[in-house]
């Protein structure tokens, strides 16, 4: 199954988004949080992200959902380092993208479909 990694500046933000996404993935989707800096404070840690990707990847690939700034840059850098074949960053809002990705991943869809579902989260508008 395609795994999902939530990269956010805060540990609790990543864990919270992962909690919601797992619930929407009806207990099947594998959603790993990678939040905050190594010391537990705010920030981004490529070491935490690498560990989360390793935990989320069962061979079918991983979709990364990031909040902003260094989260996005760290995700892009990790993909560059891993040659990018099996790990994709979704251009998506954090919670919505994570929920969409987890919902699609739970169906057994492939990496391309889960990534597309996360990016389609932008289309779900809130005031119109």
């Amino acid at each position: 199954m395609v795994g999902i990694v939530i990269i956010a500046h805060s540990r609790t933000l990543a864990e919270g988004a992962a909690e919601v996404a797992r619930a929407m993935g009806v207990g099947k989707a594998v959603v790993e949080p990678a939040g905050g800096a190594l010391d537990g404070g705010l920030g981004t840690s490529i070491d935490l992200v690498e560990a989360a990707v390793a935990a989320a990847d069962d061979g079918d690939g991983v979709v990364l959902v990031a909040d902003l700034g260094s989260s996005v840059l760290t995700a892009r850098m990790l993909i560059e380092d891993t040659d990018g074949e099996n790990v994709l960053l979704a251009d998506a809002p954090l919670v919505e993208g994570a929920v969409a990705a987890a919902s699609m991943a739970a169906t057994g869809a492939d990496l391309t479909a889960v990534h597309a579902a996360a990016e389609a989260a932008y289309d779900h508008r809130k005031t119109r």
């Binding site: 920030g43 981004t44 070491d47 700034g69 760290t74 850098m77």
Partner: peptide, 15 residues
């Protein structure tokens, strides 16, 4: 630098 900086400057300077 990438591993220890913690902000956006980590990936940028590291790269």
């Amino acid at each position: 630098v990438v591993s220890k900086t913690g902000g956006a400057s980590g990936p940028l300077y590291g790269t």
